[in-house]
Nucleic acid binder design. Structure first.
Length: 289
DNA sequence: AATACACCCAACCGCATCCTA
DNA sequence: GTAGGATGCGGTTGGGTGTAT
């Protein structure tokens, strides 16, 4: 579909708004409302495109906009919502009265993302240190055994000792997947609490579901596991029998059993059935924070 | 005081979606 | 059902400002 480019007409002003322009826009909208944004600048006597006017109004001039720094509560809310929704800034903004999507986006990129990254690095360092301590202890104990073995077997089996040491080095590698350079992923933690795979937790929203259906979802979860120790625990331990049993008790698995299917790629009918059987759509609303 | 660098945020751009004729 | 305009949304950028050297 061909679209008419914005501000195609020459002579339309771009760049920062002057206070005069702001006043004209405010006056016009207060009197007439914004109605048709495209027609507004002409009617108001502004040399701007409608898009620019809308942006200026929604992001800056609207009377209900809350100015000033974000409170810790607001930042916490943004972080939580971003974990659930990803970069859906407008949806996040709708949950923060007086804040615009642009503002939230800016705060995220300038403050929160860095802070989370820093926090994560700190956590990661702690975790690696504690892991290293555990491994170090294990190595020490192994060394003791090796030493006693060495004493018992003298020099004849030294090659075995070398092998044991190299194995311990191998074991020393981080358990978690390699760090992803991508930004903190959007959908990971909304469903991370797989230890509680009961019906309550199945009341995820439709958006999460569509993201699950995204073919990138699982790889994203795995690659972004750095962002959540829970995820690491949940997915690195998929071989864990207990967790497999929990999965079998999960609604998805039970529905698969009902439908006699063992695969996820049974087509849209399968997902349609999940939706219809999961109950009312009211369950798919965002949780209160 | 001058310069370089980093950070912040308002605004722009282009794509997606909605709406209507 | 389709075309095309209007609007919404998210990513990106550029200029202003603060800070370090």
């Amino acid at each position: 579909m061909v679209r008419a480019p914005c501000c195609e007409k020459m002579g339309l002003k771009k760049g920062p708004w002057t206070s005069e322009e702001d006043q004209i826009l405010i006056n016009y909208i207060q009197r007439h409302g914004h109605g048709n944004w495209r027609a507004l600048p002409k009617l108001a006597g502004l040399l701007r495109c409608g898009k620019s006017c809308r942006l200026r109004w929604t992001n800056y001039l609207r009377p209900d906009i809350k100015r000033g720094n974000f409170s810790p509560e607001e930042e916490e809310t943004i972080i939580k919502l971003h974990e659930m929704l990803g970069n859906r800034w407008s949806t996040i903004a709708s949950r923060l009265p007086g804040r615009t999507d642009n503002e939230i986006k800016n705060v995220w990129h300038t403050h929160l993302k860095k802070r989370l990254r820093h926090n994560h690095n700190t956590e990661e360092t702690k975790r690696r240190r504690s892991t290293a301590n555990i491994i170090s202890k294990q190595n020490q104990e192994a060394k003791k055994e090796e030493d006693s073995t060495m004493i018992n077997y003298n020099n004849n089996f030294s090659s075995n000792v070398i092998k044991t040491k190299s194995e311990s080095i191998e074991y020393n590698r981080p358990v978690s997947p390699p760090q992803s350079s991508s930004e903190i992923s959007s959908v990971t933690t909304g469903t991370t609490d797989s230890n509680n795979n009961n019906n309550d937790d199945f009341s995820m929203n439709v958006e999460n579901f569509s993201e699950i259906m995204d073919e990138n979802f699982w790889s994203e979860v795995l690659s972004s596991a750095e962002n959540s120790d829970e995820v690491v625990n949940d997915f690195s331990a998929m071989g864990n029998v207990e967790q497999e049993l929990q999965f079998l008790n999960s609604p998805i698995a039970s529905m698969e059993l009902v439908h006699g299917s063992n695969s996820y790629d049974s087509g849209m009918d399968f997902w349609y059935n999940i939706f219809t059987r999961a109950g009312e759509t009211s369950e798919f609303l965002l949780p209160d924070l």
